Amino acid sequence: MSDDPAVEVASPAGPRHRPTRDRENAGTGVRHARTGTPVPRLEREIDMTMLNPQLVRECADAVAAVLPVPGVAGEHLLKMLADFGGVDTLDSDQVLTAAAAGMWAQWVRNTDIWENAHAGGRLSDGEMFRTNAASVLAIREALAGGSTWEHALDLVTSSDRVLPDGRPLRKMLPSAHKSGRVHDYATTAARRWDNRISDSGLNPLAAYLAVGAAGAPFTSDWHGMPKWEPRVRQFVAALIEPEHPHWGGTLAARLNAFPGELVIPSLEATLLENPAQLSADVASWCVSTCALGYLAVTPG
């Protein structure tokens, strides 16, 4: 697994290094990754109920200054959240969900071990769908309850964690060693962010914006993200439209493949509330048989 570029700060000379305090200035103690100049301290503590454009922009600019990606500015992070994720950065619920989704996507879902388990058949598309939903909800709830990022990732990558299909994580992955690697990678990445927040003086909102923006290209249509509800609404509407272009004339066959009796209002409610509560067969029907994720969603 490669290091997550949003976790450590790269020096202008190339090698990665941890942020250090600059005791001779009143800034955050973090040096700009490219210029070496101190990053100004944000004077206000985070209050997710009092977001305003100035605070959000200050936070985005502050964290962009220490990311090891050349040319990234705060406005780019905010644009990624808005354009990819549909996130309103003045909505604290959306920011928190985007951050939770970004953590899970970058530090677990998109790792080589997790993806190999998926590709190798140990985690079907339906189970990936349910597991993503359950994991993001768990991380979000932990963060909302005051947990550190490390603790939130520890909860969802513990080898004893029970997945929606009833298996403990260690049974899904091919060995305890690989299970441990996923846990160590995720919690180490999260701990680095925890340390950066506490040691550097960065407003915690800055870190939420950064990790949410980094994950947005992968998580924009996940459960809980702003684009999820329109997808679900249009999907269930299409289930009674045989001529909908998504089906290509195959709706009847797909409906016949539904495991049990299809009650559309119940399916819609579960998809919106928590897809992890779907049965394994219904989840597979949604994402594999009906290609829920490939539905072309009409804006508005």
Rank of each mutant, 00 (worst) to 15 (best):
W247E: 01
A296P: 01
N132W: 02
I197M: 13
N132V: 06
E127H: 15
Q94V: 02
C290Q: 15
A216S: 13
H32L: 04
T35S: 15
N195R: 07
P53A: 13
E127C: 08
G146C: 12
M80R: 09
A214M: 12
P204L: 08
P226T: 05
E24V: 11
G85Y: 02
E43R: 08
W149V: 04
P68Q: 01
V182I: 07
A189W: 04
E127D: 15
L78I: 04
R161S: 06
I46P: 06
D91K: 06
Q106R: 15
H177W: 13
P174L: 08
E45A: 03
P259S: 02
V30W: 13
L90M: 06
A296Q: 15
V7G: 09
A269W: 00
E273G: 13
W193P: 00
P12A: 04
D154C: 08
S159K: 12
T157H: 05
D22M: 10
T187C: 12
V182Y: 01
I264V: 14
G166W: 12
M80G: 04
W104L: 08
W285C: 02
V87Y: 00
D112K: 15
V9D: 04
M80F: 00
T89Q: 00
R18D: 10
G201T: 09
S200Y: 10
R57V: 05
A190W: 03
S124L: 01
H151A: 09
T28V: 14
V9H: 02
A253F: 14
A186E: 08
V182K: 00
T187H: 09
V297Q: 08
S198D: 13
L255I: 08
R130I: 03
R21H: 12
F235S: 11
